[in-house]
């Protein structure tokens, strides 16, 4: 029988993680969280999450880094901002989710084969290189990386898109890609 411990130990904390997140511009107010659960209540996706938004707030604040960064919750957040608007302590929960997503990617600890972080990274790569998104090639890349057979299940949609003149494999690009590349390079230099 496979049993796992479901209660967190003090030893699971990565001391300093919460403070680090709360120092990021936009995430400061996390310290004011009263654990009322309004965020989880208004979140249209909390029913699918491994930790509810309220739990993610508490786990983050108290240094449970591994739990939040490898959670599905941060990736299920669809950026609808309902929690941010309803939070009685004005915590920008959506932006904290973004901060956690970036850290999860940076540390490579997002859940394996989970399509959302794969989509985010493919999207970022494509825009960084071309300055624009080509929707069909992006979607096809996503399927190739996460669920090659699943793409077949979407033949009907592909057909609909062709019939309505919206299926395009063209690669969209801005003209001045060099300028954009220079901007990214300058941004990454130390101030």
């Amino acid at each position: 029988m496979n049993i796992t411990r479901t209660i967190k130990y003090e030893a699971d904390r990565v001391k300093g993680f919460g403070d680090e997140v709360m120092k990021v511009p936009g995430c400061e107010k996390l310290k004011d969280c009263i654990q009322c659960g309004t965020c989880s209540g208004v979140c249209p996706l909390s029913v699918y999450m491994d930790y509810t938004p309220r739990q993610v707030m508490e786990l983050t604040r108290f240094d449970f880094k591994k739990e939040v960064l490898s959670s599905k919750t941060i990736w299920l957040c669809a950026s609808c901002y309902a929690c941010t608007c309803e939070c009685p302590r004005e915590i920008r929960i959506t932006d904290i989710m973004y901060e956690l997503k970036q850290r999860a990617i940076h540390e490579g600890v997002y859940p394996r084969k989970f399509p959302i972080p794969v989509l985010a990274q493919e999207f970022e790569k494509m825009v960084t290189a071309n300055g624009r998104i080509s929707e069909m090639p992006l979607v096809m890349k996503l399927f190739m990386k996460t669920d090659p057979l699943g793409a077949m299940g979407n033949w009907q949609m592909g057909l609909d898109l062709m019939k309505t003149g919206r299926f395009s494999l063209a690669s969209e690009k801005i003209n001045n890609r060099e300028q954009l590349a220079k901007m990214f390079a300058a941004a990454e230099e130390k101030a």
């Binding site: 973004y98 901060e99 985010a120 990274q121 999207f123 970022e124 300055g131 998104i133 801005i174 941004a187």
Partner: peptide, 21 residues
Amino acid sequence: DWNCCGATAYMSVDEAKACVL
């Protein structure tokens, strides 16, 4: 010669670069 706004995806990877974009 406008470029992609970055949408929600870019911000999930790198917020500073998303703002630059």
